[in-house]
Design a binder for these strands. Structure first.
Length: 273
DNA sequence: CTGTTTACCTGGGGGC
DNA sequence: TGCCCCCAGGTAAACA
């Protein structure tokens, strides 16, 4: 499940290889992943160069020399990879972008087919973010802004941290990890956090995400980076996926429950409300 | 506003 | 070996 650290790792990989390379051709094998008509998509890309690659939350923006951006969301199992140009692709590879005079091609692979690629017009970055109601990136959020958003809701911390319009980039895995690091219950109401508590929570959010970025993300099932490399933060997970194992803090058994519609791992002793 | 449910998909695991 | 059922979760939309 690509969350902020995994998307950031992919962005860095693509940036290192793709910038200033020109698109020769585009082949899409499964049309529903495209938000636009395939001919429109192809026409927008062919002949353009990759000028810049941005990330906000879990969205990637591949910005082209014609000012059009390809916005990619990997959802659950999406992968963006650079592979050898002549490599045969499998049945889960839905898009191939060939590069002019280059030994590699960019492919989009997605077992569950939930991911989407969408074009935005010139200056489309701001418009896209407003349209999706995407909140500030988790690594860029200020404590004042987060606290203001917390005070305006009656929802619990799990629901609020996973809400991309509040803070962009956290998914199920890192939300559980962050709440455990902070010894906060996922059921605690966000509006009961003090200013200091919010400050401390945001500090942990950034620390956990940065630590995961430095380990190239978390590979639990499908995630791999742009060059096919696995992440290694799964070795640092303290709570996610650890049902029945002893809490690293107090030794009591880690429980799994459902919060805000998601499988949620907690130590009910350390994370009391 | 808030919470719940469903849809979108496939592969993997449990039960038998 | 195989079949059925359920589960995993990011987002959007429908609904109570």
């Amino acid at each position: 499940m690509p969350e902020l650290p995994e998307v950031e790792t992919i962005a860095r990989g693509l940036r290192a290889y793709l910038l200033n390379k020109q698109i020769l051709d585009v082949h899409c094998h499964y049309l529903p992943i495209l938000c636009q008509d395939p001919e429109v998509f192809e026409r927008a890309l062919v002949g353009q160069k990759f000028e810049e690659i941005k990330r906000r939350g879990k969205y990637l923006f591949l910005m082209l020399s014609n000012f059009i951006s390809v916005v990619v969301h990997l959802r659950m199992t999406g992968q963006l990879r650079l592979v050898d140009r002549d490599r045969e692709v499998d049945k889960h590879t839905h898009l191939e972008i060939m590069l002019d005079g280059d030994p590699k091609k960019l492919i989009y692979r997605d077992v569950r087919k939930f991911g989407r690629l969408e074009l935005t017009g010139p200056c489309g970055y701001t418009e896209f973010i407003q349209r999706k109601k995407l909140g500030p990136d988790a690594m860029e959020t200020s404590p004042e802004e987060l606290h203001r958003r917390f005070t305006g809701t009656r929802r619990n911390l799990k629901a609020v941290l996973m809400d991309q319009s509040v803070i962009a980039g956290l998914g199920n895995i890192y939300t559980d990890e962050i709440l455990f690091h902070q010894k906060l219950s996922p059921l605690k109401k966000a509006n009961t956090l003090t200013e200091d508590g919010t400050y401390s929570l945001l500090k942990t959010i950034k620390e956990v995400l940065l630590a995961a970025i430095l380990k190239s993300g978390t590979t639990v099932s499908d995630y791999i980076g742009a060059f096919g490399q696995e992440g290694s933060y799964q070795g640092s997970l303290l709570i996610y996926g650890q049902e029945g194992k002893p809490c690293p803090c107090c030794g009591r058994s880690i429980e799994k429950m459902r919060v805000a519609g998601r499988g949620t791992y907690i130590c009910s002793h350390c994370q009391r409300i």
